[in-house]
C-alpha cells in the first residue's frame, strides 16, 4: 500500500508542524498530536497537585488502578526494570506518574503503598470523576467499570499506553507495554536527553 504511506506522511507533516527536534524512538513519536502535560489531581498525601510537581523533569504517564491483576503491575515492573538500567543522574531527571482511574478503592494511602514497590520515581495520583475525565480526555484515553461481584470486586477498563513528555512538558512518545525492557530504557534516555 503505497498511497496510504504517502498520505500518512502528508498528515504527519501537517500534524507535527515545524521546529521540533526529531528523535528516533522505538515507541511511537506523537509530538504535537496531543496537548502538553496538564492536570489537577490528588497525590499520595491527599494534597491537590498540578503538573508543576514534575517541572523540569521528563515524565512517563500511565493510567491504571492498584487492583489491576495484570497490565498495571506488568507495566510498572517494566518501567522499574528499564529505570534500573539508567544512571542515578538520569533517574533524577525522570518521574513516572501513575494515575489511578479507580478513586473509589485507590485511596492516597493505598497508592503510596503501591507505588513504593516500583521505586521512588513513581508518583501515584488520582482524582474526582471530573478531574479524571479531564485528564483522560486530554490524552485520548477512556476508562470504565465492570459490574461488581458478590465481594464487591469489579473490573476496570483503562488504556495501556505509556505517554512520554519531555522536560518542557510537551508530549513526545507513546510506548506500549509489549516493548522489550532495553527498548523502553532507550526511549527513556532519549526522552531525558530531549
Amino acid at each position: 500500500m503505497r498511497i496510504p504511506g504517502v498520505l500518512i506522511a502528508l498528515f504527519a507533516v501537517l500534524l507535527v508542524g515545524c521546529g521540533e527536534s526529531r528523535v528516533d524512538f522505538h515507541g511511537k513519536d506523537i509530538t504535537g498530536v496531543m496537548d502538553d502535560l496538564s492536570f489537577t489531581l490528588t497525590d499520595e498525601n491527599g494534597d491537590r497537585v498540578s503538573e508543576s510537581i514534575v517541572d523540569g523533569k521528563a515524565v512517563v504517564l500511565f493510567f491504571g488502578y492498584t487492583h489491576c491483576p495484570d497490565y498495571c503491575p506488568m507495566t510498572l515492573t517494566l518501567l522499574a526494570q528499564a529505570m534500573n538500567t539508567l544512571s542515578e543522574q538520569q533517574r533524577e531527571q525522570l518521574r513516572v506518574l501513575f494515575i489511578s482511574v479507580d478513586p473509589e478503592r485507590d485511596t492516597p494511602a493505598l497508592l503510596k503503598e503501591y507505588t513504593a514497590y516500583f521505586g521512588p520515581e513513581v508518583i501515584g495520583l488520582t482524582g474526582s470523576k471530573e478531574q479524571l475525565d479531564d485528564v483522560t480526555k486530554r490524552y485520548r484515553t477512556a476508562y470504565g467499570y465492570g459490574d461488581k461481584d458478590e465481594q464487591g470486586n469489579y473490573e476496570v477498563s483503562h488504556g495501556l499506553a505509556m505517554y512520554g513528555f519531555d522536560k518542557r512538558g510537551q508530549v513526545r512518545l507513546l510506548m506500549r507495554n509489549d516493548q522489550p525492557v532495553e527498548q523502553v530504557a532507550d526511549d527513556l534516555r532519549a526522552l531525558i536527553d530531549l
Binding site: T141, G144, Y145, G146, V156, S157, G159, L160, A161, R176
Partner: peptide
Amino acid sequence: YAICGRAWPL
C-alpha cells in the same frame, strides 16, 4: 482500542 482503553470492559 486496547492502548487507549475501552469505554467499558468488553
